[in-house]
């Protein structure tokens, strides 16, 4: 029963969602209503499970503090900041929207935004180190990659046109035109091949889940 019920729910819901995709929902009221209901339930479920998630986070860090873990100072930061932001968001919001809560917005603009921006900006350094490794000409494939990347990078910036003009490379033989060709023909062909594979893989996985052939994700119910 513990397995059969979830499999049955997955089968009925999956089949209905696939059916609803092909139906003109605006013309068929019962499909539209059921479709919207299921999507609403998803949001309600997410809210309940969020409490579970935050609960496990707090318990995990509380245990670290209890066990006097060497990094427990960070656990204090997590617990205090989580509870403080939750308190400000839940109990100091007077209007309909949390956007009107000045304290909450101050925390968001002065903590969340700069911290996220810092993490994102690290990408520039990581791109450099990854590019160095990827573009080392160790074999034929890596050399081809290096040459293609160099042409695309130079061809996409103004200096590419200047170099082409100085070497009297015009029309299809100019660096910008070659860069464009690399992006539009071999690059797009490879991307489309991957996309077709992904489409088939996604559909196969969805069908396997709907028909209960693949059920690893839900456990055996024992």
């Amino acid at each position: 029963m513990k397995t059969k019920l979830p499999v049955t729910i997955a089968f009925l819901t999956g089949l209905f969602m696939a059916f609803a995709y092909f139906v003109e929902r605006d013309n068929v009221a019962w499909v539209r209503i059921l479709y919207e209901e299921l999507n609403q339930n998803n949001i309600v479920l997410a809210v309940f499970v969020l409490f579970l998630g935050v609960g496990t986070l707090l318990i995990r860090h509380a245990k670290k503090i209890r066990d006097k873990n060497s990094d427990s100072i960070y656990s204090w930061v997590v617990i205090v900041s989580t509870l403080a932001v939750a308190y400000i968001g839940l109990f100091q919001t007077t209007g309909e929207s949390i956007g009107a809560n000045e304290n909450f917005q101050w925390i968001f603009n002065n903590f969340q935004v700069p911290l996220s921006a810092t993490m994102f900006s690290l990408l520039a350094f990581f791109v450099a180190s990854a590019a160095y490794r990827a573009f080392r000409a160790r074999n034929t494939e890596a050399t081809l990659l290096l040459i293609a990347a160099a042409i695309v990078m130079i061809g996409r910036v103004p200096i590419g046109s200047v170099i082409s003009d100085s070497l009297s490379l015009t029309g299809s033989f100019s660096l910008p035109a070659i860069a464009e060709w690399i992006l539009d023909i071999p690059n797009t062909a490879a991307k489309r091949a991957i996309t077709i594979g992904i489409g088939l893989g996604m559909t196969a996985t969805a069908i396997k889940i709907i028909f209960g052939i693949e059920r690893t994700y839900m456990g055996s119910g024992k």
Partner: peptide, 23 residues
């Protein structure tokens, strides 16, 4: 299956499952 992230994984990881291989 995020096509735009595949080059990053190829550059930094020992093995990369490309698109359908994930499924």
């Amino acid at each position: 299956d995020a096509v735009h992230q595949l080059p990053f994984f190829v550059a930094s990881c020992d093995y990369t499952l490309i698109g359908e291989e994930l499924y």
